[in-house]
Simulated scan of single mutants.
Amino acid sequence: MTLSLREARVRYGPLEALHGVTLAAPGPGLTVLLGRNGSGRTTALRALAGTVAPTAGSVVWDGMDVTRVPAYERARRGLCLIPDRRAVFGSLTVRENLDLTSPAHGPALDAYPRLERLLDRRAGTLSGGEQRMLALSRALLGHPRAVLVDEAAQGMSPAVAARTYELLAGLDACVVLAEQRLPPVLRDRPALVYELRRGSVVFAGEAAEWARSRAGRATGRPG
């Protein structure tokens, strides 16, 4: 299974955020979209999920053109988007948030034991890192075919962040992460990396290759 953009362009009013971006995220497997704020990585993630519509090009999932398939229908087919903000229902408790996906909370609490003592807290009162744990836990419970995550470890401690990336890398799904930097724990894993800059892809290759390329740029030598 592969989730891909093909020559995708996305506009926000008069501004074009993606300039004919082509990328392919195989599954099961891990793909990372790298770039600074304004690079287009979040827009690419949203185009894959269907929350923004390309003005040109296409979105293809498992060999089918889903460009005009709405986001809720992609969700029904097994695509889970975890945005960088408002990823949980703040007025509901942690328990109620998890119940929306599955009444069996075991896998979520195994992944993030801290959530067990927060089950009766309203999600909106949690810290940013705790809300990320909750949002990711819901994805783990849903057994999705594709998981798209914007800033997966935002607000987490280094240890919990490392655990999070290990969990995502181990999913039997197509996993696409949008990150500003490549997490250290993923540099030695078989992951694809696409680096975006100003709405265009400037690098495509394996994570280890990207790390060598970056080291070469830092020293002034070819990667």
Rank of each mutant, 00 (worst) to 15 (best):
F203S: 00
A53F: 04
L182K: 04
P83A: 12
A159R: 15
A153L: 07
H143N: 14
E179V: 06
E206M: 10
A8T: 14
A104M: 14
R9C: 15
F203W: 03
A218V: 06
R77I: 04
C80K: 12
R76Q: 14
A162C: 12
R85I: 15
P54L: 02
S157A: 15
W61L: 10
L18R: 02
D150Q: 08
C174K: 12
V185N: 07
P28L: 10
A25G: 07
P144F: 02
P70C: 07
A17F: 04
R95E: 14
A44S: 02
M133G: 09
P26Y: 14
S137K: 08
V21F: 06
L134G: 11
R46Q: 06
L192Y: 01
R76L: 15
P70F: 03
A215G: 01
A111F: 07
L18S: 03
R74H: 08
R41F: 01
V175D: 08
P158N: 08
P14Y: 01
D84N: 13
P28N: 11
T51P: 05
R74Y: 09
R181M: 11
T219Q: 15
A44R: 00
T125C: 08
R11S: 13
S200G: 14
R95N: 03
A8D: 07
A208R: 14
G155S: 12
R187F: 00
L30N: 13
L30R: 13
D65Y: 10
P28M: 09
T93C: 09
R132F: 10
T22N: 10
R214Y: 03
